[in-house]
Design a protein around this nucleic acid. Structure first.
Length: 877
RNA sequence: GGGCGCUUAGCUCAGUUGGUAGAGCGCUACCCUUACAAGGUAGAUGUCGCAAGUUCGACCCUUGCAGCGCCCACCA
């Protein structure tokens, strides 16, 4: 093996990447027993657009842990999935191909998607295709992205087994996702019912609690006067005046003296003259607004909660498109004391968007005094502008509304205790992240809504029989047989029916909805292991060892995975969960595509090399957010270069030795024993850290020790190793250098797989072809080497050498300048330590042997550095 | 309003069970020295967020406060 003169990272990294792939270095071996296998539930990245440095950061961290486990002799199951299911892909496929999905259309076998050239196609121009065709288009589009992602991951050196790939929209995932649904139904965990549900009016779909986020939005309190039946009035304050027509009651706190006399009476709403009860309710806050408020169906979660217990009929006025629906006063539940006026007023609002309706109703209220006996108008004063948090679907543009619709749910509220118990069986890294999971579980207040009124995704394997009048019977759904999965109920036919009965009275209809993407993502361990489809393999891989993921999706991904694992098999999905931090931009804002502050990784890999970029990721601790800082890449590059040079030096020294190759048995000199002791300490620390998934501390330990070794031990021993006349002493130095190199290379291998593999390959005595299958350094391998009699030899020699260098630096002279006299004053133990390495010290410091003087100083402490007096030869220049 | 985390050198961050504050970057000076000039050697820099308490002794433990970040709840 020839050693290159300069380290060209790009060339060498490409070479090793290809080599590993050709040799199958990272392949999983199915026949190795479970206890010798380490399994990873890799997060499938969303395949829409490109990866950014945040991905590189967290995936590298997982790779570090995996590589350590591999070197511990574990068979590694490290798959890669692609999340190409869900809204981001749906949007993207629509834009790229100018198509949209209509599940009611039949599948067209010969249809192929064509990318739209030029300008973005308008929504209205989109060609409608069947769900199956849409999925095919998705697979074509995401296939290209997946190749690009894979190439990046390979370049980064992720030690994934690339034969273990899955995509969340592929047949296997849809099959398992549908099977999971059927299993949940069978076990009584999943149910469908019609109820108010959070709804996004733009996507026109139900959304789940976990997909919500708060946004600060401008709003306004509107003070509206209500009449009391039998005389009198009161004023409520609301930010949603447009929901006045949906008012079903007025409530105040039971102890609120101001309104006590009103309880039991009825209020008459302005404009619509609806008679609504005035009732006490605990959730009314006397301090807030006017202390008395209207309950509408539905303005917010409290309205829904209160309505459920009230037994009052709901008045739904917001349609699925976010516009006020048409309705007729006089028809229950829209009763009115004055239906004609109510209809006339509502007619002004009907068909308007929520925003438009709000503006309109303010005008109407300002002009209306009919309900309050000519005592002014219903609207009091000007609306008071405020900023307040409003709930949004995280991908949505307008606030969520509560709409009564039929949806599928998974019971979660009933099982909080069990889910908390499952969470406690898992090791969280860092430990405090468990609290986030527990808070989320404790705070759950709605069952998990898993149906979405979208087209693209995993469909429910369900049909509904149609009655004699063509009415669907939702209470006796027809479930697909497990063997037939995956099915698309919009094109497949349930057993016992024929296609021509679709939509016909006495026939059936398919469930048009698709599942929440988390319902599929919740199964990533089972998808990778082959649950249901390959029970033997599943049993050999599951539960898994490690789930790496980001901390912001504990409430979604971690939660649903734990949930489904418990519901399906009564177990935890993995024994460890490692939470990575975020990458922050230099202004300490989270780097994310939607913020437009992302840094893409390709140019970084080119500029700083894969090892350099990996080094940056390896320095950040789990759970800790890290500011993007290109200085750290440079430190990594510097370390790589140092490893290259140190390796080159040691390997060339070894090759210059004639005769028997050196071995550990040759290590005998006190200074060398001290260096081996240093290695032992470093191995112990790095191993302990890695066992706790703390790769960053492990790297730090290796790095600190490595630089120290290069700066001091290597300099001290250089002359002896190079041309030592005492052959035994020289062999001792060479053997120590060799062991040091082999230990450091392996300690660095998880973080810096390329440079370590390169240097490892130069070494003629390497027993393992790839360093990545070499055994992780163990204390036992150095057992044969004696412990030094004194533990401060390296320290004392380094102190003196450092002082000599300092004096030369102060004198602004070269480090090769001869020291004619060196007086060392120190405690006796240090002096004797120095004497045991005297010859090395003399050579490294360019000290004249006859000029050495030692003096014992009883006043000094053991921990004090020696006092050193240096006399330099006259500079010749 | 509740919870979690953070606050240490100009910057990015370490600091193991309480015992005299650390690294790298940056900055300054010097050095071609036979592994390394894509380098090396050395130097300067801190009221450890604030306040009280426990202790012989506190960056570390306790309490309170402040600031930052995140999560959750509230949303009339």
């Amino acid at each position: 093996m020839t050693i290159p003169k300069k380290y060209k990272a790009g060339e060498i990294e490409t070479r090793w990447q290809d080599h590993w792939s050709e040799r199958g270095v990272y392949d999983w071996k199915p026949d190795v027993p479970r206890e010798n296998t380490f399994t990873v539930d890799t997060p499938p990245p969303t395949v829409s657009g490109s990866l950014h440095v945040g991905h590189v950061f967290s995936y590298t961290q997982t790779d570090l842990i995996v590589r350590y486990q591999r070197m511990q002799g574990k068979n590694i199951f490290y798959p890669m999935g692609w999340d190409d299911n869900g809204l981001p892909t749906e949007r993207r496929v629509q834009n790229v191909y100018g198509i949209s999905c209509n599940p009611r259309l039949p599948y067209e076998k010969d249809w192929k998607p064509e990318p739209q050239s030029g300008k973005k196609s308008k929504k209205s121009d989109a060609v409608e295709v069947s769900r199956k065709n849409f999925i095919e288009a998705c697979e074509i589009l995401t296939g290209d992205d997946e190749k690009a992602f894979e190439a990046l991951w390979r370049r980064l050196g992720l030690s994934v087994d690339w034969s273990l790939q899955y995509a969340t929209i592929d047949d296997h995932c849809r099959k398992l996702s549908q099977y999971s649904f059927l299993d949940l139904v069978e076990k009584g965990f999943a149910y469908s019912h019609e109820a108010p549900t959070m709804w996004d009016i733009d996507f026109r779909t139900a959304v789940a609690q976990a997909e919500l986020e708060d946004r600060e939005m401008p709003g306004a309190y509107h003070d509206i006067k209500f009449a009391v039946e039998g005389g009198g009035d009161f004023t409520i304050s609301t930010t949603r005046p447009e929901l006045l027509a949906a008012c079903i009651a007025v409530v105040a706190h039971p102890d609120d003296k101001r309104f006590k006399d009103l309880f039991g009476k009825h209020a008459i709403t302005p404009l619509f003259h609806a008679k609504v009860p005035i009732l006490p309710a605990e959730h009314a806050d006397p301090e807030k607004g006017t202390g008395i408020l209207m309950v509408c169906t539905f303005g917010d979660v409290m309205d829904v909660e209160w309505w459920k217990s009230s037994k009052l009929p709901a008045k739904q006025i917001i349609g699925r498109d976010g516009r006020l629906i048409e309705l007729d006063y006089g028809t229950a539940p829209f009763t009115s004391e004055n239906p004609e006026l109510a209809n006339s007023n509502y007619g002004e609002l009907s068909g308007l968007t929520i925003k438009q309706a709000q503006k309109k109703i303010v005008e109407l209220l300002a002009a209306d005094g009919s309900a309050v006996d000519g005592n002014g108008t219903a609207l009091l004063g000007e609306p008071k502008q405020i900023m307040h948090p409003v709930k949004f679907f995280e991908k949505g543009d307008r606030p969520v509304e509560f709409l009564t619709t039929r949806q599928w749910f998974v019971k979660v509220c009933d099982y909080k205790e069990e889910l908390l118990a499952q969470g406690r069986k898992i090791s969280w890294h860092p430990e405090y992240m468990r609290a986030r999971y527990e808070h989320w579980v404790e705070g759950l207040n709605t069952d998990w809504c898993i149906s979405r009124q979208r087209f693209f995704g995993v469909s429910f394997p369900v049909w509904y029989p149609l009655g004699e009048n063509g009415e669907p019977n939702y209470d006796s759904p027809i479930y697909a047989k497990a063997e037939s999965l995956p099915v698309d109920p919009m094109s497949d036919v349930p057993e016992g029916y024929t296609e021509d009965q679709r939509g016909q009275a006495g026939g059936f209809i398919g469930d048009p909805d698709v599942m929440d993407t988390w319902a599929t993502s919740a199964l990533t361990p089972q998808i990778a292991s082959g649950w249901y489809t390959n029970s033997e393999r599943h049993a050999g891989l599951y539960p898994m060892d490690l789930r790496p993921q980001a901390h912001d999706i504990i409430r979604t991904w971690a939660f649903v995975t734990i949930l489904k694992s418990w519901m399906h098999e009564g177990t935890i999905p993995w024994s460890h969960i490692a939470l990575s931090g975020w990458i922050l931009d230099p202004d300490r804002k989270k780097m994310s595509k939607s913020k437009g502050n992302v840094v893409t990784p390709d140019h970084l890999l080119t500029e700083y090399s894969s090892d350099g970029v990996r080094y940056w990721a390896a320095r950040a601790r789990l759970g800790t957010d890290t500011a993007f800082d290109d200085k750290v890449f440079k430190i990594g590059q510097k370390l790589v270069l140092k490893i290259f040079n140190m390796g080159k030096f040691v390997v060339s020294l070894l090759s210059q030795l004639e005769g028997e190759p050196v071995s550990k048995a040759d290590i005998s000199e006190p200074l060398d024993l001290a260096q081996i002791e240093e290695l032992r300490a470093t191995i112990a620390k790095a191993t302990k850290s890695f066992e706790a998934f703390d790769y960053a501390t492990a790297l730090q330990a290796a790095e600190d020790s490595f630089w120290k070794t290069c700066d001091f031990y290597l300099e001290l021993v250089k002359t002896r190793a190079y041309k030592g006349e005492d052959l035994a002493a020289r062999r001792s130095a060479l053997a120590t250098l060799k062991e040091s190199l082999l230990v450091y290379l392996r300690l660095f291998a998880p973080a810096l797989p390329f440079i370590t593999e390169e240097v490892w390959s130069w070494h003629p005595h390497s027993t393992c072809e790839s360093i990545h299958h070499a055994p992780w350094p163990k204390l036992e391998e150095l057992q044969i080497v004696a412990t030094p009699e004194q533990d401060n030899i390296l320290l004392a020699a380094s102190e003196v050498l450092s002082e000599v260098r300092k004096q030369k630096s102060v004198a602004q002279t070269s480090l090769t300048t001869e020291v004619t006299q060196l007086k060392v004053k120190g405690v006796s133990s240090k002096l004797s330590a120095l004497k045991s390495a005297l010859s090395d010290l003399i050579h490294a410091g360019h000290i004249t042997e006859s000029g050495m003087e030692f003096e014992e100083d009883g006043d000094l402490q053991e921990s004090d550095p020696c006092e050193v007096q240096v006399t330099l030869a006259e500079s010749s220049s």
